[in-house]
Each structure stands twice: as structure tokens, then as C-alpha cells.
Amino acid sequence: MDKKMKRYPIGHVVGFLSSLLLTFVAAGIALRTSLSFHTIMLLIGGLALVQAALQLFMFMHVNEGEDRKTQVINIAYGLIVAVIIVAGSIWVMSFGHHH
């Protein structure tokens, strides 16, 4: 029982603070700069990927656990769902009607 008292959850705190920071930076780029639309999209998209990776390591324990198979299944599952949602939506929403 005393094992969990020992270590200060430094990883979580750092992860949380840097996630906040990344979010504010993204918001700042989108709202406060006058870069071109495409640059902004690229930058905040990149920041989103960085944050996703960060969360995987800091909170989702991808680098822990003995059994690699589970991790592979989990990540494949996450990727498939993400592809269906994002790529699927773009495909469906960009057909037929143009603004």
C-alpha cells in the first residue's frame, strides 16, 4: 500500500501542464496571428499530433506493461476509428456540394 504513496506523479503533472500549454499555443496561433489559413491549419494540426503523442505516453501508459500485443491492438483500434471518423467525414462532406 505504501508503494503508491512514494512516487510523486511527476509524469502526470508535466503531461497535464504541457497539454495545457500546447492547447493555448494552438489557440494563440489561430486567433492572434495573421498567418495564412493553410499555415495555421498545418501548425495547429501538428500541435494536435504532438499533444496526442504526449498524452499516449504520459497518461495512456503505452510504454508500460509487459504485453506488446495488447498495445498493438489498442493502437490499431485507435487508428482505425480515427481514420473512419476523420477521413470518412471529409470524404462524405466534400462530395457533391461545393460552397
Partner: peptide, 18 residues
């Protein structure tokens, strides 16, 4: 079940491919 959602709005006009 994750790849059929568009059948709820065919008439939105997404085009014959979709």
C-alpha cells in the same frame, strides 16, 4: 456498424459514389 452512418442522410446529396 461504424461504416454505415451515411444511410441516415442519403438525401443530403452526397453524390452517387458515397
Amino acid at each position: 456498424s461504424m461504416v454505415v452512418w451515411v444511410h441516415h442522410f442519403y438525401t443530403m446529396g452526397a453524390g452517387p459514389g458515397v
